[in-house]
Each structure stands twice: as structure tokens, then as C-alpha cells.
Design a protein around this nucleic acid. Structure first.
Lengths: 207, 207
DNA sequence: CCGTATATAGTCCACATGGACTAATCGCGA
DNA sequence: TCGCGATTAGTCCATGTGGACTATATACGG
């Protein structure tokens, strides 16, 4: 049970954000809203501040100082610790493979930009195998249910899942195809220029 | 804030199950596992028994007696109350329309077999409009992000969502097409034979 | 220059979740 | 017929979630 096991999707998003730069909590939640991260997971104040507190207790983030502006509440700036960085990477690599956890996978995909291209390819190929097996099993269960006379009105949800399974597989195959193509850009971990320039822009936009 | 507002997806599944027949909690959770309802939502003992207790406190289900078999724990049999039936129906009708809540929608679809065909059509047509607008907005946001130079590796998740949005819309249109076709079977609420026979079979299988 | 809305920066707590634990009974092979 | 795992039928509690609430500061129209 490493530190990565207990992480929630929101926790991982916080860690990933701090990989960009040290920040205080309110800046994080504001940025997440601007970037529409609340499209992926529900983002409320209570959960967010509680998550930050947990990450600090777990040693995954650490305060780098407190400042105060006028009479407003103090703002504690947090930075990612090495343990936090490792935990976030381990979590993303694990969830890229695992099936059956939609939110976790969406967060993992959204944060996969930190991983090396070959790593992403290998992890998603493992996912592809698992997902194919899941989809085949569910599809077979649907066929069996129809064969045993279950009326269609009881199988509507399963029918939709089969359609979404197929679309998910098709997307994954297409994405793997693009990733394997050497012409596709994927800023390499410590060498890519695209990514470095983009991050500089983002940083400038924040200040 | 009617009773239907506070319902969780699991709570609705419990109410729907009791529409079939009165049962004691362990029978419910066993049936849900046999029917693979845990494919739709996570089903753990703690949450389940807690949910049943909440439904009882809210007056949506009521005990119809306690029996005991040898020295095992007592088994309280619960039945749906009129308030519970109404709350479940209201919840399903609401969630069939609403977008952006995947689990809720899956449960609503799975339980929509209790609704009249024309009601389902009307509700899903409203969903279709909302979903189309959501998808268009997200798709536009993706195009804008690409145009402003955000590298693809930061847009992988949004790209997948666009693919799944399209598949969801396509499925919904196809399903609405089938529902509108008078040749499609949809056991009407108080007159269909298919549904009544199927439920009788299910009941026999339980005993 | 006054009131009102909005942004800043959170706290608090009721409620929901999930996993570990309990404890009796039943089936079944050695 | 003895033991052992599976099934029956739950309880308990630490943790996570989300919505209501607080309080100051600034912008802006009238």
C-alpha cells in the first residue's frame, strides 16, 4: 500500500498542478475552474481544501511559506515533494491501464502528458487488451440475455454500454495509431520544446 | 426539495427492486449481484445497508414484518411505500433528461422500463437537445484550444470525450428511432403481456 | 458617496462511501 | 464425523464529499 493507492482523482490533479509551479490553494482551485477541470470531476470547496490538507499530512506536498494581503485570510503556498511527484506518476501509470473506473481514467489521460511517449503506448496497449476482454464479456452477456427471452426494455442500458464500449475501443485504437506514428508530436519528458514553451506561456498567463 | 432530490443512485435501485416484490435487505443485495447491477455502480455492504436505513427513515420503504431462521440474524422484510414509488419515478424521469451525470443516467436508463413509452420518448428528446448542445460546446472548446496552440498532448482527454459524445448521440438517436417505431415492443405500463410474463419468471426464479 | 454585487479565501458539518470485521450455519470431502 | 471453506446476514468506523455558511475587499452603477 504505497502512497499512490490512497490518492483520489482530485488529489492527483492537485499534485499535477503543483508540478507546474508552487501555488496557494485558492489559486489552484481558481485555475482548475478556468481550465474547466470541473468537466472531469466535481469540484467543491469542501472536498478541495480537505484534499489539500490530506496531501500535506501524507507528505506529498509541503508548505513553502505563508503570506498575507491586507486583512484577508493567510495564504499558504504549497510545493510538490519528491514523494508527491512519485505518487502522482505511479497513480497515473496505474490508472491508464485499469478499466472500469471512468473518472480515474479520464484524470489519468488528462495528466499523461508528463509521461514518456513509449511509456504511454505500453500502458495503453495493456489497457486495450483488458478493455477488449471486458467489452466482449459484456457483449456476450447481452446476447445471452436476449437469447433467454429478456425483453429489450430491460436491456436498454446494457445496449448503450455496448455502443460506448465500441466507441471507446475505436478511439483507443486510433489514438494508439497516432502515438506510434513518429510524425506525431509528443514533447519528450526532458527534451521537448513544444511542451516547455507551452508551460512558459501558461505560467505567464497566470501572473 | 422533494424526496426524490436526496436519492442516491443506489437508493433508486433499491426502490425499483421493491417494485417487483417485498424483500429483505440481504435478498436485495444478492439479487443485485446476480443481475450484475454492480456493473453500473459500486456495491458494498456498508453503503447498501446504510442506504436501506435512510430510505426507511425517509418513509420511502416500510417494514412489513420480521422473521428469523434458526439462530441467524433477524430479517426485516421491506416494501415500497406510495411515497417511495413516486420518488423513484420522479428521480428516473429527472435523470433521463439531465446530462453530465453518467452514473445517474445509467441507473435511470436501466430503470426506465417502468415508464410509458411516450414518456420515455419525450424525456429522451429533451436529453437529446441538451446533449447536442453540450457536445457542440465541448467540441468548439477543443477546436479553439488547438487553434491557440495548445499541444495535442494536453488535449488527449478532451479528444476522447468528443469521440464518446459522438457515440452517445448516435446511440441516443438510434434508440429514439427504435422507440418511435410502433413495431418495437415496449410492454405498456398496465397492459403489456411481455413484461408481466417476464416479471412472473423472475419472481419464480427467486423462490 | 452609497449600496450592492462579485471576487477572494476559506471553514464547518451532515451525510455518503467502502472496506474490514463478526458470527452463525451449511455443504462437503477426507 | 470432523474440520474447513463458503454462504448468510449483517455491523462498525475511518475517510471522503458537497453544500451552506462566513467575512473582507474591491468594482461599479446610480
Amino acid at each position: 500500500m504505497s502512497a499512490a493507492d490512497r490518492l483520489t482523482p482530485l488529489g492527483v490533479m492537485v499534485l499535477s498542478m503543483l508540478r507546474e509551479d508552487a501555488m496557494h490553494p485558492y489559486e489552484m482551485i481558481r485555475l482548475m475552474r478556468i481550465r474547466r477541470d470541473d468537466r472531469i470531476l466535481s469540484l467543491t470547496n469542501g472536498t478541495f481544501y480537505h484534499t489539500v490538507a490530506r496531501l500535506e499530512r501524507a507528505g506529498l506536498i509541503a508548505s513553502t511559506g505563508v503570506d498575507r494581503d491586507g486583512n484577508r485570510p493567510e495564504r499558504t503556498t504549497y510545493a510538490l515533494t519528491p514523494a508527491g511527484s512519485g505518487a502522482a506518476t505511479a497513480w497515473v501509470r496505474r490508472e491508464l491501464v485499469r478499466t472500469g473506473r471512468p473518472t480515474e481514467f479520464r484524470v489519468a489521460l488528462a495528466e499523461a502528458h508528463d509521461l514518456a511517449r513509449d511509456d504511454v503506448i505500453a500502458l495503453l496497449e495493456r489497457r486495450r487488451a483488458l478493455l477488449g476482454a471486458d467489452a466482449a464479456e459484456r457483449s456476450q452477456a447481452l446476447v445471452d440475455a436476449r437469447a433467454t427471452g429478456v425483453p429489450d426494455q430491460y436491456l436498454v442500458e446494457a445496449d448503450r454500454e455496448a455502443a460506448l464500449d465500441a466507441a471507446d475501443l475505436a478511439w483507443l485504437d486510433a489514438f494508439l495509431g497516432r502515438l506510434r506514428d513518429p510524425d506525431t508530436l509528443w514533447g519528450e519528458h526532458a527534451g521537448g520544446k513544444t511542451s516547455a514553451r507551452y508551460l512558459a506561456q501558461r505560467k505567464a498567463a497566470r501572473e
